[in-house]
Amino acid sequence: MSFHLKFVMPSHPRYLCIVRAAVTELSLVHGFPEESSQGLTLAIDEALANVIRHAYKGRHDQEVELNCRTVDDRLEFTLLDHGEAPDPARICGQPMDEVSLSGRGTHLIKAVMDEVCYERVPRGNQLKLIKYLPAAKVGADKK
């Protein structure tokens, strides 16, 4: 039986710590070492922060949905918001100036996750983030 955890929450930063705690525990339970769990938590947190900051322009009263699932050999995190579509340049991750103040969130997400897929769907913006389980990754690397 697979695992499925669903968050439906307001776009307010005060809820981010709840998601971070859950994602950290979820990844530890699935065998990720502590450092990888911290990275995964960071990636999901950055994705949610991007939704609040960009899709909802800082509004704290909008709805964000996050689904966390185990699917075979991976953890899948799917974010759904009903805000503005993101700037394609931002999704791609801007090249970072040495001391630029912005654009690091997307870079962090891509550095941590194995797959990042954005899609505009009828309900809004959907971002799917995938991380392969440690055992699956070892198997995939050997192939």
Partner: peptide, 16 residues
């Protein structure tokens, strides 16, 4: 125990 990119951006601003 945790810092995100907005925290890093704040540190960078102070550094600058």
């Amino acid at each position: 125990r945790y810092i995100d990119s907005s925290g890093i951006a704040s540190l960078l601003e102070v550094f600058k």
